[in-house]
């Protein structure tokens, strides 16, 4: 089998890897690079558990080929906290019980961060539509939406972010 050599940037670091033609970016992240934060819930682009950011856009990494990442910049859940310090979204997810089993959480956090970087003050409806590609079976979404709202308020510097 022919392998391609790929050079890409992941969470700010330059990374090189070899991959098969049919391997997805998700396969590469998980199986070759040991970055298992992105999850495979379906492999067909329907669940969002594998969500990562590529050149500023959120993508289902199960639909991107490993080879396509060449020369791109990828951001994953592993790069979201700065050392010990959690991103406000991560903190509000924890405090607001926005996760139960947590399998959907990495994908949702990556997607939500991309939203808040584009739109610091999204309405409930905007959040719901933005996250409509990220399935969560445990929570019924209520606490996820609230956590995103609360994190957004904090990031806007509104002190009474409850």
């Amino acid at each position: 089998m022919t392998h391609s050599h790929v050079t890409t940037t992941i969470n700010g670091d330059t990374v090189d890897y070899l991959c098969d033609a049919e391997e997805t970016l998700l396969d590469v992240l998980r199986d070759r690079l040991g970055m298992t934060g992105a999850k495979e819930g379906c492999g067909t682009g329907d669940c969002g558990a594998c969500t990562v950011e590529m050149d500023g856009r959120i993508v289902c990494s199960c639909l991107v080929l490993g080879a396509e990442a060449d020369g791109r910049s990828i951001r994953t859940i592993e790069g979201m906290a700065k050392g010990e310090e959690l991103h406000p979204l991560q903190r509000h997810f924890l405090e607001g019980a926005a996760l139960q089993c947590g399998i959907c959480t990495p994908g949702i956090l990556v997607a939500a961060r991309a939203l808040l970087e584009k739109n610091p003050n999204p309405s409930e409806t905007e959040i719901r539509y933005w996250l409509a590609g990220n399935l969560c079976r445990c929570t019924g979404y209520d606490k996820i939406i609230r956590a995103v709202q609360n994190a957004a308020a904090e990031m806007r510097g509104e002190s009474n972010a409850a």
Partner: peptide
């Protein structure tokens, strides 16, 4: 109770689920 003991691992992608073992 406010937060949960496994919480940080689950929001940072460190938690190991079924398919995450090698």
């Amino acid at each position: 109770v406010k937060t949960r003991p496994d919480g940080v691992d689950k929001v940072t992608g460190r938690a190991k689920f079924g398919a995450d073992m090698f």
